[in-house]
Structure formats: structure tokens, C-alpha cells
């Protein structure tokens, strides 16, 4: 199935968000996630089902003013 990860189209076979992060190579990275504009806390990634065309945002610490 195809989903948008940080605006780029990606293929995934993962059933849920936790599995998708592993598959996409984020592993143990410190990131926060939002699915279709809604924040998904780390504790809720397992079981957060993915569907074709979902928009996933994976954010990490960055410079800020």
C-alpha cells in the first residue's frame, strides 16, 4: 500500500504505525508522529492502523528560534 511519509510517496506492508516506523528505517530514533494531521503518541503507535493514502508525519528535534 502507498502512504505519504513526510510528503513523499512510500510503499509499505506494515499494518500499523509502529511497524511502519521500523520498516521505514526510523528504528529507535527520537521522533514524534502524526497520522492524517492527528498526533499519535508513542504508546499508541502499535495498533494505529494504516490505510492506503494515509499521510504520516515523522518529526524530530531541530534548530529553532
Amino acid at each position: 500500500m502507498k502512504i505519504l511519509v513526510n510528503g513523499a510517496l512510500r510503499d509499505t506492508r506494515a499494518g500499523d504505525l509502529a511497524a511502519a516506523l521500523q520498516e521505514l528505517g526510523y528504528g529507535d530514533a527520537v521522533v514524534a508522529t502524526a497520522l492524517n494531521g492527528e498526533f499519535v503518541p508513542a504508546g499508541s503507535r502499535t495498533g494505529a492502523r494504516l490505510a492506503e493514502g494515509d499521510r504520516l508525519e515523522v518529526l524530530a528535534p531541530m534548530q529553532g528560534g
Binding site: 528505517g25 508525519e57 518529526l59 524530530a60 531541530m62 528560534g65
Partner: peptide
């Protein structure tokens, strides 16, 4: 120190280094 959140690439992982 102020910080922010931005999209993280799984390849570069720039955010992890910054953090």
C-alpha cells in the same frame, strides 16, 4: 535554548544528531 520540530529523514537522521 529554544528548539523546534521538523520532518526527519530516516536516512540522514539530522534531528538525532542535533538533539
Amino acid at each position: 535554548v529554544t528548539v523546534s520540530l521538523r520532518r526527519e529523514s530516516s536516512g540522514e537522521r539530522a534531528g538525532q544528531g542535533f538533539w
